[in-house]
Design a protein around this nucleic acid. Structure first.
Length: 593
RNA sequence: GCGCUCGUAGCUCAACGGAUAGAGCACUUGACUACGGAUCAAGAGGUUGCAGGUUCGAGUCCUGCCGAGCGCGCCA
């Protein structure tokens, strides 16, 4: 049943390639350079590119290619014209256009193939800190990483999610000691009210512990001893630590559920899971001659990375006190993901400010031989979320903005917008829609700008009903569902088998078909640069193209039965593509809004 | 000092090296007995920071400037 439907673009590519092979055999392997066109269904720029090496005038070569294409009976081409300096403007046959619509609509995957099949990608994202509330700084890694994981998985790839949870460090000695001395403190989820959670309680207790640590030297001593006990595996200390971790992970899970993020406890691979590998990592690097001792610390010096004094900046594999920092744990993740998880590709969805760190870590891992040239390791870097003042987003008092309250604010705003426009909604449905629209707004706003850039968090723009927003896409989808419901009331259902290839599509209809056929291309563009905003841009143009179609092409009141049958299938395919695309962004597509 | 990233319409942002640089917001004008007007159409708005270079063709690639942000030994 599931069947890949090659795009019309790829069909034209092969046709141009065949034409090239006939007209210019020595450049048979050249890129056909087939692109969407404003002046035709598709265009090929192959003649322009090939003319120089062929020592031919581009227009002349284009003419020869056009002639060859006209003789190609297997190509889905109705007309080829040479334009400008040598562009090939291609018009497709109506039958080919409708065939794509019917074939995609008939397939549960909309004819999208599985180009990622056989490739295993380990993707590192989210990575919240145990006993600390998730804040705005976790928003982008969580949302971008989850979307990439969904897309790679949909394209047939094997995806291993890894959340590098901050579950280890000296701060836990402080917290555990404080909890031990304050047995009355309530932080287990079972002891808390439903509207709060363990991680929120633990975060507050940690702040209290920190304050005490700085004010009370005796407590500080006891806290330090507790760190040693934790590292030594002291059973009661470890038991408390485990409970803290478990309670925190449960709380993260609740937030992930709300956000529509796929991470599960099985995906948590915290820093502590690498503890017993760190000495081995250091030893291997030293034995391989990649790392050497400097001022008591084991370091990797790479002349490619220099500091203010012009000397190489070290990667700290082992600190002079014998401890290990995040340089080492990140090196350990690479070794583990290659050796044990057998990754074919590594993605680290981490703040752009860590770019030097990852460049160093990747270089060291390559030098150590852990990371072969055949395996791509990518720092999927993203910019900072800014506040209205253009500075990193903080609360008015300068504190971090909790993710939960950010989402609450968006949902509240979305509820007001929906309630105003649709006053008749029952309260329960309003709640559900406000949640989906509000969460979707935040996620879409984050995903829809180029990830490397900073962006300003602006709720008013995010929940806007027009423009490139999540709500607009949700609305476009809901309106098509509404149309299909109305059709169903009249006993009309979209039937791909009933699509009539002899119907001449109207202009807006034709543009919509062509765009729908580019879905796979949009996904591969998105994966090529690990840039979800490309998928967003595609879906936005699709929503606009459907609206234009909707305005000018009556569906239920179409001129002929054949036209109506075709438009019903076209509408269903547009709705399914919007919903599928939104799902790959991790955004809900409700049937009503 | 060195390195990374960014600079596109008044604002927020797009644009696999392709033709006349596109959207949204805001602004102007027009269209509602309407398959959801929560919409659409049209108009106006640009020396793509500056200067060179590569190319048949540059917002895109290269070099140098200018401006902004970020980063650069034992925090993560």
């Amino acid at each position: 049943m599931e069947e890949q439907v090659p795009s019309l673009g790829s069909g034209v590519e092969s046709a141009v390639a065949r034409a090239m092979a006939r007209v210019l055999p020595e450049q048979a392997g050249a890129d056909p350079l087939v692109r969407p066109s404003e002046r035709a269904d598709l265009q090929s720029n192959a003649a322009l590119a090939a003319a120089r090496t062929a020592r031919t005038a581009p227009a002349r070569l284009a003419g020869s290619l056009a002639e060859a294409l006209r003789e190609d009976r297997t190509a889905p081409i109705a007309r080829v014209e040479v334009a400008g300096p040598g562009f090939l403007n291609v018009t497709l046959t109506d039958a080919a256009l409708w065939h794509q619509v019917a074939a995609r609509a008939a397939d549960p995957r909309l004819g999208i193939g599985t180009p990622e099949r056989g490739r295993r990608t380990v993707i590192d994202y989210s990575g919240p800190n145990i006993a600390k509330e998730m804040h705005v700084g976790h928003l982008r890694t969580t949302i971008i990483g989850d979307s990439l994981a969904r897309i790679l998985g949909f394209l047939g790839g094997e995806v291993v999610r890894q959340s590098h949870v901050g579950d280890w460090g000296t701060q836990f000695g402080m917290l555990i000691q404080y909890l031990d001395e304050h047995p009355d403190a309530r932080w287990h989820q079972a002891d808390l009210a439903a509207d709060t959670d363990a991680v929120s309680a633990l975060d507050q207790l940690y702040r209290a512990a920190r304050a005490l640590f700085e004010a009370d030297a005796d407590f500080a001593d006891r806290a330090r001893r507790r760190v040693v006990a934790l590292q030594a595996g002291d059973p009661p200390t470890v038991a408390t630590w485990r409970t803290i971790v478990a309670e925190s992970e449960t709380a993260f899970g609740r937030l992930y559920d709300r956000l529509g993020v796929l991470l599960t406890p099985a995906d948590y691979a915290g820093e502590s899971t690498y503890n017993d590998q760190l000495a081995g990592v250091a030893a291997e690097l030293e034995a391989a001659g990649v790392a050497r001792l400097s001022e008591g610390a084991l370091c990797v010096f790479d002349p490619a990375f220099t500091g203010p004094d012009g000397a190489p900046v070290p990667l700290l594999v082992r600190k002079s006190d014998g401890g290990y920092g995040y340089d080492t744990t990140d090196l350990a993740t690479i070794r583990h993901r290659l050796r044990d998880l057998r990754a074919d590709r590594l993605l680290y969805v981490v703040d752009a400010r860590q770019s030097l760190h990852f460049a160093q870590v990747f270089a060291a891992a390559r030098a150590a031989g852990w990371l072969p040239d055949t395996v791509e390791a990518v720092h999927v870097a993203f910019g900072t979320v800014l506040g209205p003042d253009g500075r990193p987003f903080k609360t008015r008092s300068g504190g971090t903005v909790r993710l939960a309250e950010l989402l609450d604010a968006a949902v509240t705003r979305a509820r007001a917008v929906v309630a105003e426009k649709n006053p008749g909604l029952p309260a329960a449905e309003l709640d559900r829609i406000a949640e989906q629209a509000g969460i979707g707004s935040v996620k879409y706003a984050d995903l829809s700008t180029a990830r490397i850039k900073d962006y300003a968090f602006d709720l008013d723009r995010m929940v806007s009903l027009s423009g490139n927003t999540g709500v607009y896409l949700q609305y476009a989808h809901a309106r098509i569902r509404s149309l299909l419901r109305r059709a169903a009331e009249q006993g009309l259902a979209p039937d791909p088998a009933a699509v009539d290839g002899t119907v001449a599509p109207a202009g807006a209809e034709r543009r919509l078909v062509l765009l729908l056929d580019r879905y796979a291309g949009a996904l591969s563009d998105t994966v090529a640069g690990y840039e979800p905003h490309r998928l967003c841009g595609y879906l936005y143009s699709l929503a606009k193209a459907y609206t234009e179609f909707y305005e000018t092409c009556p569906v239920l009141a179409a001129g002929t039965d054949a036209q109506r049958a075709n438009r019903l299938v076209l509408s269903a395919l547009a709705a399914d593509t919007l919903r599928g695309g939104l799902d790959l962004l991790g955004i809900a597509a409700p049937d009503r809004l």
